Every structure is written in structure tokens, then in C-alpha cells.
Amino acid sequence: MHDLACASLQGDDLCLPCGLARLAGTPEGARLSQRRVPRGEPLYRQGSAYGAIYAVRAGSFKSTVHDEDGLEQVTGFHVDGDILGLDGMARLRHASTAVALEDAEVLVLPSCDAGLDPLLPRLMSRELVRQRERLQLLMGRSAEARVATFVQDITQRMHARGYSPREFHLRLSRGEIGSYLGLKLETVSRVFGRLQRQRVLRAEGRHVRVLDPAALAAACGASA
């Protein structure tokens, strides 16, 4: 069971695979299983019964919600080390759909497992912080600041997981990024174009290379 942990745990940011793997094998340990999710397939659907939480071990996911007219809104982007499924705890049904953006693998922890109890307070707290950060991103920020902050968030998450913070492949399309940021597709494309002309970054399709981290950080504070 020890090989279920990820390669590293940096700082005090809780990596759920590592946390669960440390508990596994102890008397109160979590009963882990693995699940592979092919690209484009849902891990769970909005309205489906809640029965487990999931730790992304490899790959990435998007979270979406659908309104009564069937329109989709992207509400989250998740990479390895992130958690999924906590939205089902309140009403025992998932409030969103989680879809794999590439072939992915998750660790599954049944909701009834006592091994989850020592981790729940930190998991819930981290989720609340991320939701607050997303609201702050959407409130009173210019389109350039939203896109720049989104890119900077990915660089920070890549760095925390031992990947290059300067070059990565975006799994979300421009339209999905717009949905997540509350912007139109054309606006997202226009901002990426402007950041390229300013030599802040280079974007070729979904491949992004950050050329000037300081300028990217400055763009995050751009006024409306």
C-alpha cells in the first residue's frame, strides 16, 4: 500500500494521497482502492449519490455544474494531489460533475471509512479557502487580471508538485477557461494574445510558456 503515495510532499500543504497512504496499514487506517478514469469520462455526475471522496493521483479533471436549461459552467480545475467529491457530503448527492481532461487515476476512499476522520478538518478548510479565492478572482477583476491569475495559479500548483512552473500544457480549452473565469471565449483569446504581444507568455494552442514571471504577477493586479 505504501507505493500509493505520490513522489513528494512539499511544505505543509496536505497531499491527500500521501496523507491516506501514511494512514493505510494502521489499525484506524484508510481502505484505499484505485480507479482509472479515461479522458472525457465522468468520475461522478451532478445529482449522483455520494459514497466516496477521491484524490487525484495522476492526470487532471474539471468540475462542472449544469443549470435547468442544460448550460454548463466550469467551477473547478483539479490536478494530482487535489481532492474531489466533498461537494456530496452536505446532501449525500454530488452538486457537480467531475470529468477527466486526460487519462487519469484516482485513489478512492469510501465515505464511511473511519480513516478519513483525521483528515477531514484540513480537507474541508482547504476547500473553503479555494472557493473563497475563486470568488475573489471573479469579483471586480479585469479580464486580464483573471486570465493572468489563472495562469499564475497553474504555475504555482505545478511548482508545488515538482513540475516546471514555466512551461506546461493547459488541459482546459479557451472556452472552458472562459466559463471558469466568467469571461467570453473571445475575451480569453484576446487576453492571451495581448499577453503574448507583451512577451509575458507564449501560447501555442494549449501549450503555455511563461516568459516573464514578474510581468505575469503584475498582470494579476491589473485594474478593471
Rank of each mutant, 00 (worst) to 15 (best):
L14E: 09
S189H: 04
D82P: 00
Q34F: 01
V65M: 07
R146K: 15
Q34D: 06
D103E: 13
S8D: 11
C15T: 03
R199Q: 15
G11W: 03
Q196V: 00
G70Y: 03
V200S: 08
Q196L: 00
V188G: 05
R35E: 08
M139W: 13
R134H: 15
G70D: 02
L138H: 07
R157G: 03
A49Q: 10
E68R: 15
G85S: 03
P118Y: 08
A218K: 15
L128D: 02
V37H: 08
V147M: 11
R157N: 05
L20N: 03
R31S: 06
G47N: 02
S179A: 11
Y54R: 06
V200D: 09
P118Q: 07
G205M: 13
Q131E: 14
T26L: 14
E41V: 13
E127P: 00
S189V: 05
R174Y: 11
L135Y: 13
V191W: 05
E144H: 01
C6D: 09
L16T: 00
L183K: 07
L9E: 15
E68A: 15
H169L: 12
V129H: 07
V106M: 04
E41T: 14
F168Q: 04
T155H: 05
V74L: 10
P42Y: 09
R209T: 12
E186L: 08
G140D: 15
H207Q: 15
G59R: 11
C112N: 08
